[in-house]
Write a protein that binds this DNA or RNA. Structure first.
Length: 231
DNA sequence: GCGACAG
DNA sequence: ATCTTGTCGC
């Protein structure tokens, strides 16, 4: 898939934050995504080692959720993990893995936040700005914002509010499991993002594309970057 | 100054 | 995220 030319990512922390605030104004909330016309959904995730990051992207046919393509890429880790600046650490490897995808995907789900970020530019929104398809943020834990615990039943959800704005939804993807944090990445509205995530969670807490990518990323790292481990 | 803090 | 055995719950 097409990934636009990235800008410099190896920046001083203060400048990285300043850049996020600038880019945030470019994020597009909406339009709604018609799930009836979605054929392929991709999930992206990263597994980190000592000095290397291994990213993988898994493409699944929708709504069947069967894996049709898995691609990966490794990149040296040059940026430390700083809450709020995850994109600067993981984008190099993820962008490369995404560019290797040949299937025409209709949406990408990232294992990170989108607008539910202190400067409204989580990895899903940041990298989403360089993609021509909708992107969704689906994180396992909260970065910012306040919320009330959703009911324990699958599908229950509550607003994630930060500084007076609804920046995402706290969604129960399966009965009883801990909720996930869904937010707009880019080029999609919050409701569609939540619907897509729920449609991808038929057996587990995390959306199937994300799960597949996560497993593949671990294999890729254990294999030292050997692409054949993705099969 | 003191907590909180995606992966 | 990663390091790791057994163990509590459905």
């Amino acid at each position: 898939m097409r990934v636009a030319r990235l800008h410099e990512l190896n920046l001083p922390v203060a400048e990285a934050r300043r850049l996020q605030s600038e880019l945030a104004s470019r994020v597009q909330t909406g339009p709604p995504l018609d799930l009836d016309r979605v054929r392929f959904v991709a999930g992206a995730d990263v597994s980190t080692g000592d000095e290397m990051a291994y990213a993988t992207v898994a493409v699944l046919r929708f709504p069947e959720l069967e894996v049709v393509e898995v691609r990966g890429a490794g990149a040296p880790l040059s940026f430390p993990y700083v809450p709020g600046l995850l994109a600067f650490r993981e984008i190099p490897s993820v962008a490369e893995a995404l560019s290797r995808i040949e299937t025409p995907v209709d949406a990408v789900i990232f294992d990170a936040q989108g607008l539910a970020h202190p400067r409204r530019l989580g990895l899903a929104s940041h990298l989403g700005l360089f993609l021509d398809v909708p992107s969704v943020g689906c994180a396992k834990s909260r970065l910012t914002g306040r919320f009330e615990e959703p009911d324990r039943k699958k599908g229950s959800a509550t607003d994630l509010v930060d500084r007076g704005e609804v920046v995402g939804r706290v969604v129960r993807t399966r009965d009883g499991v801990s909720p996930v944090f869904v937010s707009v990445g880019n080029r999609i509205d919050l409701q569609s993002a939540v619907d897509l995530v729920l449609a991808c969670c038929t057996r587990y807490r995390l959306p199937e594309p994300t799960r597949q990518a996560h497993n593949a990323a671990n294999r890729l790292r254990r294999a030292g970057g050997n692409q054949e481990s993705l099969f």
